[in-house]
């Protein structure tokens, strides 16, 4: 197969970027999008030219490291991670525009590589059960109905790629944050910190410069893990629920 690529090129965070055009041919339809870029890089290297920097690691759709915007869609056309997007999904001869994930909270590091550490900092604000390593009660002492476990798992499956943020017209991280809150607040182990968790995470989200949710639903539409939009409803409910409690030490949005 043959393609024309328009690839975002930017030397570093503080420099201006631009699109660079490349023609690639002889691409196997079963090659993944990233393997196509590997091939392009190999050819550029063979000509002694600058290669394109992009993130990827596991290449099986679970690490969340790959993060390209392809023709305006975070990850690409199929609601799967970039590494699971295959060239057979594109028209032969197509012109494809390749950009990094776009969000003010994800500054570009180089070319297609962005800094998504803001998501780690949201987790640091309370996306966990506070517990040390040591003796614990037997897990079966706190049974979890399979229906609850499945719902928790649907949310916990989030790979933290940030496609939801890149797709959102407001640049909101509500799907990511809602998934965290849904995961922990539905489980018995998450109850002691339930009241403060949603508010801590929402405040962290605001501090990182993510936008607010106005129900576009683009996030869920691009999520490779199919995290349901419900988690945002859950986040809002848990935020309000916590704000009513008298033992509030976290505060609310100002």
């Amino acid at each position: 197969m043959r393609f024309t690529l328009e690839v975002w090129t930017q030397a570093s965070r503080d420099e201006e970027g631009h699109f660079e055009r490349y023609d690639v041919d002889g691409i196997d339809p079963d090659a993944s999008f990233l393997e196509m870029l590997d091939e392009l890089n190999a050819r550029l290297a063979a000509e002694g030219k600058r290669t394109i920097a992009f993130d990827s690691d596991c290449r099986e759709g679970i690490c969340g490291m790959c993060s390209l915007t392809i023709d305006g869609q975070p990850h690409g056309p199929n609601q799967v991670t970039t590494c699971q997007t295959f060239m057979r999904d594109f028209e032969d001869g197509a012109t494809i525009r390749v950009e990094p994930f776009r969000s003010g909270a994800f500054p570009v590091v180089r070319d297609l590589v962005t800094d998504r550490s803001a998501l780690d900092r949201i987790v640091q604000a309370g996306g966990y059960v506070t517990t040390k390593t040591g003796p614990k009660p037997d897990p079966n002492a706190a049974p979890v109905p399979p229906a609850v476990q499945q719902k928790v798992m649907d949310a916990a499956a989030c790979i933290g790629c940030g496609a939801c943020v890149a797709a959102c017209p407001n640049g909101a991280a509500m799907l990511f944050t809602g998934a965290k809150v849904t995961h922990f607040n539905l489980l018995p182990q998450g109850q002691p910190e339930r009241a403060s968790r949603a508010r801590s995470l929402v405040l962290a989200m605001d501090a990182e410069g993510f936008g607010g949710c106005t129900n576009y639903g683009e996030c869920a539409r691009v999520c490779p893990q199919e995290i349901p939009l419900d988690v945002i409803g859950m986040l809002n409910r848990e935020y309000r629920r916590g704000a009513r409690r008298e033992d509030d030490t976290v505060g609310t949005r100002t």
Binding site: V129, T131, K136, P143, V144, Q149, Q189, G190
Partner: peptide, 9 residues
């Protein structure tokens, strides 16, 4: 489990 790892039930 204490950390909230959702094993199958």
């Amino acid at each position: 489990v204490a950390q909230g790892v959702p094993f199958n039930r």
